[in-house]
């Protein structure tokens, strides 16, 4: 029985090994974008099963990991597209300060910040900053967070995001503006103000 090898032997490693080799990576990839461990786990599971079915079409042109991440990406986008349609539109504003609140009557920023002198690469290595960034991201409601992560984490062009989510570019700009203004304010008051005082 052992003499006959499966035809895909030199293309992918044994599927069970995928879990140890790529499981954590895929899980973190999904977790970062979805902020929900259970959901991230389900999508990774689905990714492995889909990969298993498609394993004979793996050409070996990219690495096994890149191939698996590609499948997971599709799963995440499918999920976001579906939830986006099911999500009531008025959720958009519910849990976030409206843009108006960041400005005074004359249209000036209320939190007049100082410059941020940190370096994006090294600041991430500080545990406390990571925690604050995570918290600030988690405060974004679903639609805002979705548009924002497709743009800033995946780096997708605006037109592509509009197509995926079925929204106008005006709509997307509002969501991104809201996400950025909120995040900027959140990082300013929870991190940058504090380190300036120390």
């Amino acid at each position: 029985m052992n003499r006959k090898q499966p035809i895909d032997q030199h293309q992918t490693s044994h599927p069970e090994v995928w879990v140890d080799q790529h499981g954590d990576y895929l899980f973190r990839y999904a977790l970062l974008r979805l902020q929900n461990a259970e959901l991230a786990q389900d999508l990774v599971q689905d990714t492995f099963l889909a990969a298993l079915r498609a394993r004979h079409s793996f050409t070996g042109q990219s690495s096994e990991r890149t191939w698996l991440v590609g499948i997971l990406k599709h799963k995440i986008i499918d999920y976001l597209r579906r939830s986006w349609r099911e999500c009531p539109v008025d959720e958009i504003d519910s849990s976030l300060n409206s843009i108006e609140e960041f400005f005074d009557k004359t249209g000036h920023l209320r939190d007049i910040s100082h410059g941020w002198t940190a370096d994006p690469g090294t600041i991430l290595e500080q545990r406390e900053f990571q925690g604050i960034l995570e918290r600030c991201l988690a405060e974004l409601p679903f639609r805002t967070a979705t548009a924002f992560s497709l743009r800033e984490m995946d780096g997708l062009p605006a037109e592509e995001i509009c197509k995926i989510l079925g929204i106008s570019s005006g709509n997307l700009h509002v969501l991104l503006y809201r996400a950025r203004t909120h995040l900027r304010h959140c990082l300013e008051i929870h991190w940058f103000v504090k380190i300036r005082k120390d």
Binding site: G23, D24, L32, L124, L133, G155
Partner: peptide, 19 residues
């Protein structure tokens, strides 16, 4: 910062949990 985070998810300095 976010691009860097999304490219370095395996870096042990990050607190993202494993499976």
């Amino acid at each position: 910062t976010l691009r860097s985070l999304s490219q370095r998810i395996e870096d042990p300095v990050f607190s993202l949990p494993p499976l």
